[in-house]
Computed example of a mutant assay.
Amino acid sequence: MSAEADPFLALDVSSDDYATTAAHDQHSGADATFAAVEAEDDSDAEREKAGAARAARTRYTEDDFLAQKASYTARIDEGNIWKQLLSFEPPFCPSEEFISAVNAASVDTIPSASSSDSLSGKQKTTLDKKHHQTIQAAVSELYFLEKYAAVKEIITWAKDNFEKDKKWDVQVKKWEDKVEKKMQAA
């Protein structure tokens, strides 16, 4: 290729210069072998160091995993998720209509109505993720079972007792709209 065809791609170097340049770039004989072994030793040391750093970071050994695996039991949920709301602070205090709607004939852990009256003047509690998910699961379960009055009672309790944020407002509004539509249709 000539320099006149494309000035950016054209190189004016004779073929003999390539061989000389390549010879200077490479180490010769024992120097090349020594350099290669030294580089390999460095990479092994770096790999070991990286492995030790990773192990220190995770601190979860195979024995730890096997011990946890042996002690693991799956949580089996047989319904009545709303009963978990009884242990919240402030606790959910279901009404008689709620209990009859969900067919909960024997509920041992229902807080008395007086405890809910004493909480009415207190400041609203901030919901953490676990509690928010529990409320959402209870609402979803009762909605699926078509217990719309019970869902409405949980929504009212949640709105009255827990601090709102943007996500919470959107979720509660969605629940309310769905329940209202279903109650009007019934």
Rank of each mutant, 00 (worst) to 15 (best):
I110Y: 05
F8M: 06
A22R: 12
A55Q: 02
T21M: 11
E48L: 09
V170F: 15
D25E: 15
V151A: 01
T126C: 10
K152P: 00
Y18C: 05
L9M: 11
S115T: 15
I99V: 03
R57Q: 07
D169H: 06
E62K: 04
K164E: 05
S14F: 15
F34I: 11
D169C: 08
N103R: 09
E4P: 00
L66G: 02
L145D: 00
W168T: 10
L9F: 03
D41C: 14
K83I: 03
Q123H: 11
G51T: 10
D41S: 12
T58W: 05
D165E: 04
S2A: 15
S106Y: 14
R59V: 07
K164I: 15
I81H: 05
A53V: 03
T134S: 06
Y72I: 07
A185W: 05
K49L: 15
A19Q: 09
S115P: 01
K181W: 04
P90H: 03
E146Y: 04
D41E: 11
K178W: 11
A104M: 00
D42M: 15
S14C: 09
Q26P: 03
D117G: 11
S43H: 05
R57H: 12
D117Q: 12
K159G: 02
H131T: 10
D6I: 05
A5G: 08
T109R: 07
L145F: 04
Q123N: 12
K49G: 13
A101Y: 02
S15F: 12
S114I: 13
V107M: 08
C93M: 10
A149D: 05
A45Y: 04
P90Q: 09
E89I: 08
H24F: 05
D44Q: 11
E62G: 06
R57C: 13
I76L: 14
L11W: 09
T73C: 09
S95W: 01
V107D: 01
K83L: 02
I81Y: 11
H131G: 06
M183G: 02
K181Y: 03
L145A: 08
E141V: 03
Y148S: 02
K174V: 06
A22L: 10
S112H: 07
E78F: 05
A149V: 08
P111K: 01
Q26W: 04
A185Y: 03
A19N: 11
A52C: 07
S140F: 05
P90S: 14
E89G: 14
F88P: 00
D16C: 03
A39D: 00
I76Y: 06
D117H: 07
A158E: 05
T21F: 12
A113Q: 10
N80G: 04
I154T: 01
V107N: 03
A45F: 02
W157H: 04
T73A: 14
S140T: 06
A186W: 03
A149Y: 02
T134W: 12
D169P: 00
Q84N: 09
H132E: 08
D108R: 14
K166P: 02
